[in-house]
Computed example of a mutant assay.
Amino acid sequence: MNLSLRKSSITLLMLIIGILFLFPFFWMISASFKQETEVFNFPIEWIPTHWNAVQNYTQVWLKTPFAQYYGNSILVSVSTTALSVFISCMAAYGFTKVYFKGREVIFLILLVVYMIPHQAILVPQFIIFRWLGLYDTHIGLIFLNCFSVLGTFLLRQAFLSINDEFIESARMDGAGHFRIFTSVIVPLVKPVVATYAILRFIWTWNDYQNPLIFLNSKHLFTLQLGIQSFGNENGQFYSLVMAGAVSAILPLLIVFIIGQKHVIEGISAGGVKG
């Protein structure tokens, strides 16, 4: 088979598979604009006959505490992302550019800890957070997610690709570790940092398990718990539930569209050791 024809066939196949994966997303958007009686019409009406978008979205946003859930998710996701990126960058810098005894052993221990399923440590975490008074607080939820072995590993791989001559030059100019970290190292790995920030935001925004366990007060619920509560109360109104789901996914689409160019660059750079 001609190489060009083979590439075209693979591209076409990937396009078809991609469209198939997007069908549920398109149906969700379409259902959010429909009247309740039209949601499950068969064959599927991708373009609603009777548009009911204003009423659906108005009821979701104005007649439920959906805005509060949204604000809680933004607060937790942004704070967690900022802290996690900073801590992971500092840890990666320490494991690559600061030489101390036992550095590789400590990093190996971190990787071993990462292999422990998160569910296996939920009970100890719950007990510790209750003892510290962080249970049922946004601060506790933020602290729970701001330490990431995966983020440290990803950024460490990127930091390893940076030549130590940059650091030596900065030291000759009188720069200390923090100045080197902020002015030399981080700017050189911006794609990787941006990639991890995007991934961390998405993971935190979509997190259901941790808020379910560590939050109890309804006014503190993040969007995932809020949608579940909203679905339990309005489960028979699928058009409203779909309107809530569409609203919940919009920030993820915006973040990914803005930062998508960094994702491929960041993953590629993070997997290359200099």
Rank of each mutant, 00 (worst) to 15 (best):
T222P: 03
M90W: 15
Q55A: 07
Y93E: 07
V98S: 11
V255T: 03
P48M: 03
V39Y: 05
V189Y: 05
F100C: 00
L144P: 02
L22H: 04
V39H: 10
W131K: 15
L252S: 10
V98I: 05
E45F: 11
A197V: 04
N234A: 03
Y99D: 15
A31L: 03
M28D: 01
S161M: 11
F86A: 10
E168N: 08
K7L: 10
S161Y: 10
H262T: 10
V255P: 02
I142R: 01
I139Y: 08
N72V: 04
F86M: 08
P187D: 10
F42M: 02
F33H: 05
D164T: 14
K261T: 07
F40H: 03
S30Y: 06
F26G: 06
H50R: 11
M90P: 08
T49A: 09
F230A: 01
R156D: 03
K34C: 01
L12C: 03
G140E: 05
I19H: 07
N210V: 13
A92C: 15
V263G: 05
V241L: 09
F23I: 03
G270R: 04
N234V: 10
S217R: 15
P43M: 04
E38P: 01
L250D: 02
K7E: 06
L141E: 08
L154G: 04
F221Q: 15
P251I: 06
Y69L: 05
I19E: 02
V263K: 03
E104D: 14
I87Y: 08
W131D: 11
Q59S: 10
M1H: 14
S8M: 07
V184H: 00
L3G: 11
I139F: 10
S239E: 14
K261D: 12
L75V: 02
M242K: 03
D207G: 10
V189A: 14
A197C: 08
L215S: 15
I180H: 06
L220F: 11
I162V: 06
M172F: 13
F237W: 08
A91T: 00
F256L: 09
M28Y: 12
Y99T: 15
L22Y: 05
V39A: 04
N234G: 12
E233M: 13
G176Q: 07
T58A: 14
A269W: 13
V246R: 09
K101M: 15
I142M: 07
A194I: 02
V186P: 15
T152I: 09
G71I: 03
P211A: 14
V78F: 12
H138S: 01
Q59L: 13
F181V: 01
S77F: 03
N56I: 12
I17M: 14
V255L: 09
F181Y: 08
I267V: 11
G266M: 04
W131H: 15
T11R: 13
T137S: 02
F256M: 13
H262F: 15
S88D: 04
A158G: 09
L75D: 05
V149D: 11
F100P: 00
Y99E: 15
F221D: 15
N216T: 13
L220P: 09
G151Y: 10
G274R: 06
E38V: 01
F86Q: 09
A197G: 00
M28I: 04
R156L: 13
